[in-house]
Amino acid sequence: MKRKIVFGVVLMAGLVMAACGGNDSASGEANTSSATSENTSNQAADDGKGVGKFTNVELTNPLDQKMVSAGKLVYDMKCGSCHRLTNEKLVGPGWKGVTSRRKPEWIMNFATNVEEMLAKDPNAMAMLEECLVRMPNQNLSDDDARHVLEFMRNNDGVK
């Protein structure tokens, strides 16, 4: 119940931001495409998968340890300066529990398509309002993103 209200407020804030966000958005391309993707972003809010090319991520069972170690390398080089592995916030939220908070598609979309997510995805926008630092696009390949996801699942105790 409480959660729903928060979500509603967040969604409102998100929409308001989307409406006036054009002013400070750095990229002209993002502006021009915002009108057409209004629908997709609503859909995205519905299915919780975020905005981006990942619509269906197959999860491994058990975890793929090769992917976990590859994911750790990416984490150390490109993510660790802002994300702790506990639930302590640094620049961004700590990663403990992130795989239960977010769908795998959402995580991979966020990691690879952060500009658009921060402009359109209500959950992402809500986070930005709190953190007030835009997460950078860290230039991940699709594989990198998948590996980091596996690393996050490992961190969340998935076997």
Binding site: D76, M77, K78, G80, S81, N139
Partner: peptide, 17 residues
């Protein structure tokens, strides 16, 4: 950007660790 993976600077620090 310059890809951090490709950075071959002898004193590069590729991650906070």
């Amino acid at each position: 950007i310059f890809k951090i993976e490709d950075n071959k600077h002898p004193y590069a620090t590729k991650g906070e660790a």
